[in-house]
Design a protein around this nucleic acid. Structure first.
Lengths: 236, 236
DNA sequence: ACTGTTCTGATTATCGAATTTATCTCGGCC
DNA sequence: GGCCGAGATAAATTCGATAATCAGAACAGT
């Protein structure tokens, strides 16, 4: 159901061969989602159906349905009978998000470490390797979002908890991960140069594969909390 | 947001006064949801837009949007370009659901007990009292779903965890609670007479208000697990 | 000058029809 | 006899237009 966030290079009027398979709604959904996560549609922005129709080259129904889908991901909000807007960001929202993610991912990681088999270990190793071989930022001088790294980063964190034994919990974690992306991008702007994220990932991977649940959880939660400390300035 | 299932007899051109406030989409959503939870739309049933249009008296767009919303609640599934169906029930699905609910609600309950103030205590007391004053089943001889009890039961369980400090976690718990309703109704058919649910609720309430987190969690999880034991027969 | 009201332009929510896509049926072929 | 593909049917998806609704401006009354 959830398809990977692809780069979405496209003229809306001339759909390419493979995209023709999936519905227009899901293409619009994917593009809107990518635009929101990358900040091209900034927080709190009003999303007028008519405007979106023009920019995405679709009728009202697919647009509306895609927005509806995004609303259940909490990336957009619906306002009674006044349409949609991009969900706003705030310090409170971020704190709640971080806290909840820590609760859920701690449980998921402990379960994975307890029950994960060789296949889980291999998924973690592979995801970690892939992540390590791609640069964090597209530019060396300042932080510029790298879509490929983003995908691999999510894949790594999902691999860590993939053996938790509950697809439902994985879905929640995935959803919260996505909600967090916008905050992390903000944080990275401040944290660039100061933070060594690949070392953090390596430490988490090591503890998880050593089956040291307490240490792995400690490192994972610290990894998440660190983002918060860099964000504190942004919202003050 | 969720309103009772009203009969909705009206020509679309002349809506009655109070229903005019909310959108047609949300009314269709509420009715579909109620029909699924009550089993009037049975698991795995194909939901044809055309049929729904006739029975719910709405155009394709509101129907589709309501179904889309239900899909993110996991009460219906979308099949690529082959429409929607009611999500099927199965033993595996139930077990995963129960496991995940226990994980999430344990955390939520512990947080509530740790941080809940007098307002939380009052909400719990009130919800427990209301629940205790309504019969479980509409009939004394056999189990017949009582909508009022259902609402109060959910309200009680949500009140217990309402001070957990995360609206996000509450949303997840609420969603899982709803997903579980269909299973619980099945279980109650088997469990009727054997089970004393009000005593179980009383025990949970007591432990929670006494701030004994371990005991409260133990009782809550046992409460959830008991449903499962009654269900085992159903899926074998 | 202030509050409440009506009008107006803009925007959303909804509909019914047209289009695209899947499913089913039947006949020909191996 | 079973398999494959073409045509017919049913269904989902999408579109363009219409009706309902909202926010803001101009206006009138106290």
């Amino acid at each position: 159901m959830i398809n990977k966030t692809e780069t979405l290079q496209r003229t809306a009027t001339q759909p390419d061969a493979q995209a023709a398979q999936e519905s227009l709604t899901s293409r619009v959904y994917a593009r809107l989602r990518a635009d929101i996560l990358a900040g091209r549609l900034e927080p709190a922005r009003k999303l007028k159906i008519e405007d979106l129709r023009k920019s995405y080259g679709a009728g009202a129904s697919p647009i509306r349905e895609a927005l509806s889908h995004l609303a259940s991901d909490h990336l957009v909000e619906r306002l009674d009978q006044r349409g949609f807007r991009v969900t706003d960001v705030s310090g409170e929202e971020f704190n709640e998000l971080r806290k909840t993610r820590c609760w859920l991912e701690e449980r998921a990681l402990r379960e994975s470490i307890a029950h994960g088999g060789p296949d889980w270990e291999e998924r973690v190793v592979l995801a970690a390797y892939r992540l390590s071989s791609v640069p964090w930022s597209k530019s060396a001088d300042e932080y510029v979002v790298n879509g490929e790294w983003e995908d691999l980063h999510k894949a790594f964190h999902m691999a860590l908890i993939s053996a938790c034994g509950s697809a439902i919990l994985l879905r929640f974690c995935s959803q919260l991960y996505d909600q967090n992306i916008r905050y992390r991008v903000l944080s990275n702007r401040a944290a660039y140069r100061e933070r060594d994220s690949s070392a953090e990932h390596e430490a988490i991977r090591e503890a998880a594969l050593a089956r040291d649940a307490d240490l792995a959880v400690e490192r994972l939660l610290a990894h998440y909390s660190r983002t918060g400390s860099y964000l504190r300035d942004t919202f003050d």
